[in-house]
Structures are given as C-alpha cells and as structure tokens.
C-alpha cells in the first residue's frame, strides 16, 4: 500500500465513501508535499463529525452525540490523570468551589447529549445487549482487581506488583472508556432518538465549560506546586484543548444542523 493511500484510509469511513477516490487522486498528484495537508485533514475530520457526509440531519446529530459522550470519557480520564500524583484537586484551597460545579456541568452535558433508545422492545433490547457485550468484560476485570487489591493489599503494596496493578488499573480505565463510547457509536436512527439541536448545543456547551474549568484548575495547581506536577500540567493542558475542540463543534452545529 502506498503512503498516500494509507493516509487516506485514516479518514473517517463516511468521508472516504464520499470523497475517497478524488482525494486519493489528488494526494497521488501532490506526492509527499501533500502529506502534511492530509495529516491535518485527518485530525480536522475526526474532530468535526458534524461535517461528515450524512444521509440525514438526524445522522449528523447522532454523530455529535457520540462525540459528546467520547469527550465526557476523555475529560473524566484526564481529570483522573491530573490527580495521579500529589493532592486531589478537590483538596487544594478553593478546589471544591470549582470542581463540584465542574462535575455537575460534566454530568449535565452527558445527560443532554446522550442519545436515548426508542421506546420499543427491540430498540431497548438492542441498546442493553450492546451495553452488556461491550462493558461486561471491563466490569468483571475491574471487580476482580478491586477484590485482589483488598485481599492481597500487603503483597501489592510496593515494587513490581504495585506497578503492574497500577498499569492494569489505567489500562482498564482506558478500555472501559473506549467500550462506553462504542456502546453509543453508530447505533442508528432506528434504535436511538438523536438528541434535538437545542439539547446538543446546551450539552456540548456544558461539556466545554466543564473541560475548560477543570483544565484551568489542574494547570494552576500543577504550576503552583513547589515542584511542578507534570501529569497535572499535561492533563490540564489536554483538557483546555478538549474545550477548544468542543467549542468548534458548537460552531459546526450552528452551521450544519438545524431543527
């Protein structure tokens, strides 16, 4: 496979189906000089699902809903990463004042963007079945890890076993987040009702505010400590970038989707 063809395959499938052949021809003609533009285009498309070619506006709204759920999972993981070392953000002076509203905004956003199953037996069964298939594994492994941590606390307290447990914990969080996103991705308009535009706007705005606030607190706390807390700074910066990407989705919604 040539490099330009490999790069084109990194675009979302809906985009490739519509523009793939033409893009491939142009990429071949541009040669290696076109690679940076292709890479930027790939990132651009994955960050803007509202503009992917779609059969209907409902499909666009469903994709934005999936983006909202994914952003929530990413925000939770980053907020957890920000406290991986040192003091929990909520314990720093004034932290509770900001972080509880952040949690509320995150939950509000998730509630607003989450697509709801249609009120029919086949639709509810399909959603529940998919949730069980995708999440049962991480839940069982997580329960086993918690049980092992309690049962063998002394054995796992330090050294190699502790590192192994910690790596397993983070791996499990990431897998769980990916699987939760896969539960809602591509369910289809026959199974779920895509949120209305006002719900999406409010939900994405709420997630944007939550990410920006949490990221700012994590950055401030990470930089203020006597020895800079690198995980908190990196996670805070990533949360601010997430807020920027979500703000761009608000613009996409205004320009492309209307009730």
């Amino acid at each position: 496979m040539t490099t330009h063809r490999g790069l084109v395959r990194l675009y979302p499938a809906a985009f490739r189906d519509r523009w793939g052949p033409g893009l491939e021809d142009d990429a071949r003609a541009a040669g290696w000089k076109g690679w940076p533009s292709l890479l930027a285009g790939i990132a651009d498309m994955w960050l803007h699902p509202a503009i992917w070619p779609a059969d209907s506006r409902a499909q666009r709204r469903e994709r934005v809903a999936t983006l909202g759920v994914t952003a929530t999972m990413v925000a939770v993981l980053l907020a957890r990463a920000a406290t991986a070392r040192g003091v929990p953000l909520v314990a720093v002076p004034g932290g509770a004042l900001v972080l509880w509203p952040c949690t509320a905004l995150l939950l509000l956003g998730l509630g607003l963007v989450a697509p709801l199953p249609r009120l029919s037996r086949p639709a509810v069964t399909a959603v529940l079945g998919r949730a069980v298939r995708r999440l049962a594994g991480p839940v069982v492994v997580g329960a086993a890890m918690v049980a092992a941590a309690h049962r063998y606390a002394a054995v796992l307290a330090g050294g190699f076993r502790h590192q192994l447990m910690l790596t397993g914990y983070w791996g499990l969080l990431v897998v769980g987040a990916v699987q939760a996103c896969r539960v809602v991705a591509g369910l289809g308009v026959k199974v779920v009702v895509a949120p209305r535009v006002w719900r999406l706007r409010l939900g994405i705005a709420s997630l944007t505010a939550a990410s920006a606030l949490t990221g700012s607190v994590a950055l401030a706390v990470g930089l203020a400590r006597p020895q800079a807390d690198r995980p908190a700074i990196a996670a805070g910066g990533a949360l601010v970038l997430l807020a920027w990407a979500l703000a761009a989705t608000l613009r996409d919604l205004r320009e492309t989707v209307a009730d």
Partner: peptide
Amino acid sequence: ERLGPGSLYGALARLEAK
C-alpha cells in the same frame, strides 16, 4: 498555488454539509 489535498477536501466536505 494549489490547495493541499486535505485542505481542498475538508473545504468540500464543509461546503456540502452547509
């Protein structure tokens, strides 16, 4: 000058979505 392939097809996707 020509647009890069990513810029051109990104613009086409946006214009079609709008």
